[in-house]
Simulated assay, not measured.
Amino acid sequence: MRVSLDLPGSPDRTRVVVAMSGGVDSSVVAGLLKESGYDVVGVTLQLYDHGEATHRKGACCAGQDIHDARRVAETLGIPHYVLDYEERFREAVIDPFAASYAAGETPVPCISCNQTVKFADLLGTAERLGADALATGHYVRSEQHGNRRALFRPVDLDRDQSYFLFATTPAQLDFLRFPLGGMTKAETRAAARAFNLPIAEKSDSQDICFVPSGGYADVIRKLNPGAAEPGHIVHIDGRVLGRHDGIINFTVGQRRGIGIALGQPLYVVHLDPEGRRVIVGPREALLTGRLHLRGVNWLGDMPLAEVPAGGIDILARVRSTRPPMPARLMVKDGKVVVDLAVGEAGVAPGQACVFYDGDGDGARVLGGGWIERSEHNAEAEIALGKLVSRDSAVAAL
């Protein structure tokens, strides 16, 4: 199967650096480009070395995965380099993740990794290697749109990774290529077998590669021992229901593992790091209708400054596992606010809100931002306002 990267010049005179994680997707990208006649150079980043994580099934960018990337490069007959980005990855991704989590947020480190290490640092390395493009194994599409490239959802919506790429800038999009955007995962696996790649049946990588056992709290304790301070579990109506061993053990929207029996389901509604309180309540208290965003990356044609006072209709996505839903984007005092047409449950600061112009195959990504604050229903907002505005007296009880 031959692919075209929509670049000037013939493939044999076009150098493409492929970000090879050691997994099936990026390995197939290298194979497709090699078969299509491009001058392919494979680059693998060593991002961490956390002992157990380097051998865990489904990990990436460490240990066995680097070895797998080397074997694929040998099979394809392409040059391959391993770059030590461990210090940079810790500085740009792991440490901010730990700080955000300890502050009661729900960060998405995969987006930060793409935003910093992969699409900034690695992209710069590709340019220094004389590359005309950097190709990755993400399931997303980019196409020429006017004088720039635009980002779109892929053919295989079950594998859609556009949520994790909202922070990609227009300049980066011009240099990036995503050859798997027009393929399904089944087709990618079939291509891996056709290329006789040694990783053809390898399991997919996990979302958070540097968490050895899936336990975020364990990583936070190791990086920030003071983050696991005990405190109180407080009902949204003000009642103190019990104690906890640290807010890092909880996330907004959580139902199981709270450790309180009240005769009705309880959900984590808010985390108060200053007061060391986990605030719980009924499910209806979770519903969020308005999102206040920070760090917005806008990829639409209309400049944000020209968005009319009443806003514009978009589709918004607050989780990678949810489809885009109707919403309205507004700019108030220079800040982006998104009103969701249907309330979402379990939305937390630190998550991403990504904008689209549709919800199907080929829908364009209009950008996105990080959720700084979410507004619940009126009753819950009033109750939370009273709780969070209190001093820390409750935590000292």
Rank of each mutant, 00 (worst) to 15 (best):
G362Y: 13
N249E: 10
S112N: 04
V40W: 03
R364D: 01
R221L: 00
V43Q: 09
F195G: 05
A192M: 06
D391Y: 04
I248R: 13
K386H: 11
L266M: 00
Q254H: 07
T125I: 02
T106Q: 08
H67D: 08
R317T: 07
Q64P: 03
L45A: 15
A92H: 13
E375I: 03
Q46L: 12
V41S: 06
L151T: 00
A30P: 05
N377C: 02
I382R: 13
R328H: 01
V108T: 09
V268E: 05
A53E: 06
E201L: 02
G137F: 01
H244M: 02
V296Q: 03
L266Q: 00
I208F: 02
Q206W: 14
P265H: 05
D272W: 08
D160W: 02
T44I: 08
F89M: 11
D156M: 10
L5D: 08
D132R: 15
P170I: 08
Q115R: 15
D95W: 04
Y356E: 15
S112M: 01
V342M: 11
Y356N: 15
L33F: 02
T184I: 06
G238K: 00
R70P: 05
V365E: 03
G51A: 01
F89L: 07
R390P: 00
G242L: 00
D301Y: 10
L304V: 07
G37R: 13
D49G: 12
K222I: 01
G358P: 06
Q206D: 08
G214Q: 11
A305R: 15
R141Q: 14
G257T: 12
P323F: 03
D359Q: 15
H244P: 01
E229L: 07
S374N: 08
T116G: 04
P154I: 13
K34I: 04
V296D: 02
C353V: 07
V336M: 14
K57T: 03
R255C: 08
D84Y: 12
S21K: 13
G257N: 14
G226P: 00
